[in-house]
Every structure is written in C-alpha cells, then in structure tokens.
C-alpha cells in the first residue's frame, strides 16, 4: 500500500541494467510492434492491452531483477506480447513490499510477480500481522495472496567451500541477500553436517553482494 507513491520513480522503462554492460541495450531499442503471427494464439484468447508490470520482489541488480529484464528483452525482441512491459523493483522488507503490492492488486492481471520461492514464503510468514497467508498452494482456493502461473528454473549454487570444511575447525565468512531465509537454511545444513562455523554479512541485493564480496573471499583458519 505504501508502495504506490514510489511506484513511478522505481520503474525502469526498458532501460539497460547498469551492472550488466550494454548487453541488453541493443535489444531494448527494438520496436514492440512485431505482431504475433496470425494463428499463434487462439483468436479469442485474452491478452493484455495495457502496460504489463513485472514486479520484482528483490533489490536492483539482483538475480530476480536481471531475470525480469532478460524476459522483458526476450518479449520485446521476439514480439511475444503487444502490450508494453516494464520492470518495477519492490524489494522492501525482504520481498514483503512486493507481496503487499500484489495483494492490493487482486484480480489485476497486468501485474506478474517474480521471486525466489523460499524468499517469498519467508516474507509472507514474517508478515503475519498483515494477513498475508502462504501462497496459494495449500489449503482452500483463494486463501493465499498470490497464485503460481509458471516457474523458470531452479538455481544451483557452487561455492566449492564444502570441500574445505569437512571435519573442520575452519570459520567462514558468508555474505548474501538471504539473511534469515535461504542463506540461513543452507548455512545451517552445512554446519550440521560438518561442524563448520559461519559468520554472516547481509546485503540488500545480489548486485551489492557481488560487488562487496569480489576479491574478499578467503578461508580464515582459527
């Protein structure tokens, strides 16, 4: 709800992401007017006629943001949709800002939320006072705040740290954007399996984490 006034300022009208060189700059200039080939979709199928907003439940430059922009570019370059498409960042309160925004947009099919599932789940659980139930996958229809329409990919993370922490007296510094969420889960499972210790540096987005952590990774012997 509080998200509304700042909405406009946070939108990115087909801009190239600042942290990703000019890779998307070339494609964002392509006209959106490539019409769908006749017969590509059934004649009566609904499609949006006004601007579609991809709502990112994470910070600028993070993985969700990058993926949203990639999809924006893919849609425009391949003429997959006639309506214009924008990306808006609503990463406040660990993604709860985006959930509230979607919750206040019931029935508005011109908005699509993108986010990592554990993050959104954690954000929803952390906002119980706002009556944001868990996403619509358990329980009755209609008791959740959002509804899954599709899913793109499962991420893998390869840090190579595990090899060194076997049986270990080693302390690691871990930095990331998933404080109290996925980073805590993964940290806990490593700790349980190996006894390794971690200290944690929380960052606001993957972009920030990458910038801050590049060149600083090291193993600290106790």
């Amino acid at each position: 709800m509080s998200a509304k006034p700042s909405e406009r300022s946070k939108e990115h009208q087909a801009q190239a992401p600042t942290d990703d060189g000019g890779r998307y700059a070339q494609v964002t200039g392509v006209a959106v007017g490539l019409l769908l080939a006749a017969g590509a979709t059934p004649a009566l199928a609904w499609e949006p006629t006004k601007r579609v907003e991809i709502v990112v439940a994470a910070g600028a430059g993070g993985a969700s943001d990058q993926m949203a922009r990639m999809m924006q570019a893919a849609i425009q370059k391949n003429g997959l949709m006639k309506a214009p498409i924008v990306v808006s960042l609503k990463g406040g309160a660990s993604g709860a800002e985006a959930l509230m925004y979607m919750k206040s947009s019931d029935g508005d099919a011109n908005k699509v939320l993108i986010g990592l599932f554990p993050d959104l789940h954690a954000a929803a659980l952390g906002e119980n006072s706002l009556q944001l139930a868990r996403p619509h996958t358990r329980g009755r229809r209609g008791d959740g705040s959002v509804r899954p329409v599709g899913q793109c990919g499962r991420s893998k993370v390869g840090q190579g740290l595990h090899r060194r922490c076997e049986g270990c007296r080693v302390s690691f510094k871990m930095g990331g954007t998933g404080s109290k969420r996925e980073d805590m889960c993964s940290r806990y499972s490593w700790k349980k399996k190996t006894g390794a210790k971690f200290s944690y540096l929380p960052y606001k987005s993957g972009g920030e984490a990458a910038t801050q952590l590049v060149g600083t990774t090291r193993i600290q012997r106790q």
């Binding site: 019931d106 029935g107 699509v112 939320l113 993108i114 959002v146 996925e182």
Partner: peptide, 12 residues
C-alpha cells in the same frame, strides 16, 4: 539445496 524462481499472478 534447490531454490526455485517462480512467477505469480495476483489472486483472483
């Protein structure tokens, strides 16, 4: 440990 990125439409 797997994470999933998902797309969601608003309820209703």
């Amino acid at each position: 440990y797997l994470m999933l990125r998902a797309m969601f439409c608003p309820e209703k």
